[in-house]
Design a protein around this nucleic acid. Structure first.
Lengths: 251, 251
DNA sequence: GTCACCGTTCTCCGGACCAGAACACTTATT
DNA sequence: AATAAGTGTTCTGGTCCGGAGAACGGTGAC
């Protein structure tokens, strides 16, 4: 569902924020030339954003402010799946010693709500708020496997099936085969698809009505996860964590 | 420094976001009457925000989306003080078993960058991104005590000295006395000022040039913090954590 | 001293925002 | 089953505001 009458001025503001986020702190002139806007326009937008805390001036450069974290943090905090899953993801990380994650779907993309590091956890470049294509991670596949087929097709239509690595899923047919396997097993696996040498295992969180609310995962280097682990003790732990969350959500 | 030529359209968008955040999910008509805007205007803004992921439609209601978390999370991740302090705050929480926090100053307000819970931690309503007046918390006082006096006056001028509780600091003179004591001790204390029965102890993080970059704290119920702890073992731990961060930032 | 660059300010016109009315739909009431 | 009152959405035209471009003030290089 697209905006029939988009507010162009607002879109310019948002483009500015996006550009500022990607480039890091930078000046008025540079932003103006990147976005094909006049310097005065860029300046007006930036000072307006600054007035409300969304942007800060650092010397002569501007950078995105923490107001975004306030709004985003508030939004996250008010999500039931986050409130309930947060302690479980933490204890999953503590128990396994690895990196544990919580992902939800929003507008066809995966959004990391949190990550918790165990004592031996690898340090990935994921962070709370990061967006990712659903078909490229175990977390995303666990979610896709529990969405109606029509929804999955919409998502493919909208975001495509970009191949992050040669191992990535590249066709609709391949994806649906994988999702069928995920449904049978009850959990999804990523064996080096996203990052060479990294194994992930993810389980969906479903409401009592069968709707998928998110997914929980553990990520670990292949050197620490044997093939037996990958289909034995690890799924057990992740599924158990997801199950606890489901029980707590459904009271 | 105020915007000389604010972009009014953008300000309307931001007001909408703010209202949506405070009220939680709600409909077009309600937002329109709250903000004294026409329904069509509200609708145009919301669909525009939705198109970019900043707002979502949930049935007939709209709510803030996680795009804010993406931008805010990115902004936080790119802050050196966060990168360096994050593991230290976590281990401070693990060691003490209590709630540990990291705060930075932005535009005269305190912004929580993270919180880490130890095994016995109290569950406050703070969250990453939350803003607070600096003079009402130990964290804020630790920061104010290390800002130039002129800066502190600017902040008082801009944000006032709102009294959250009867114990809160209410006058400029009182504040400066407290800040002087903080400078002498090297750490700041909040003994039930923010919340009855809650004790906090905070230490500043300073760069090699003496500039204050943020503050680290531990919050615990008074029942678990004796007066000796409050001036003995606890400051030692918090100061040590802050010190490690300082050393790592300054290489 | 000169130049080249920056961020900021100013003015005026073309175009975009938005009030208000109409529409499609759902739900409650009679 | 007809009505009414609520919702979100669409449409249009008039008015007001966003922004191009030029001018200004400051800073740093050479």
């Amino acid at each position: 569902m697209d905006a029939k009458h988009p507010v162009r001025t607002t879109e310019k503001t948002l483009a500015l924020v996006e550009e500022l986020m990607q480039k890091g702190p930078c000046g008025v002139t540079e932003l103006a030339s990147d976005l094909d806007m006049g310097k005065s326009a860029v300046h007006n937008h930036l000072t307006t954003l600054q007035k409300h805390g969304y942007v800060l001036k650092d010397g002569d450069d501007y950078r995105v402010g923490l107001k975004f974290l306030e709004v985003g943090g508030h939004s996250r905090k008010s999500m039931e799946v986050y409130q309930v899953a947060e302690p479980e993801v933490k204890s999953l990380a503590a128990d396994t010693g690895e990196l544990a994650n919580l992902l939800v779907e929003e507008q066809g993309m995966g959004v990391y709500l949190m990550r918790a590091k165990g004592d031996d956890a690898v340090d990935l470049d994921t962070y709370a708020g990061l967006r990712t294509n659903l078909h490229t991670t175990a977390l995303g596949k666990a979610i896709l496997a529990n969405l109606p087929e029509s929804r999955v097709d919409e998502i493919i239509e909208r975001h495509g099936l970009e191949q992050k690595t040669p191992k990535s899923i590249g066709t609709r047919q391949e994806l649906f085969q994988v999702l069928e396997a995920v449904r049978e097993r009850g959990y999804a696996i990523d064996d080096g698809e996203r990052l060479e040498g990294l194994r992930c295992l993810a389980a969906p969180i479903k409401s009592s009505s069968g709707e998928v609310l998110g997914a929980i995962s553990v990520s670990a280097p292949a050197s620490r996860v044997s093939d037996e682990d990958l289909h034995g003790s690890l799924p057990e732990r992740v599924l158990s964590a997801a199950n606890v969350v489901e029980l707590n959500i459904n009271y």
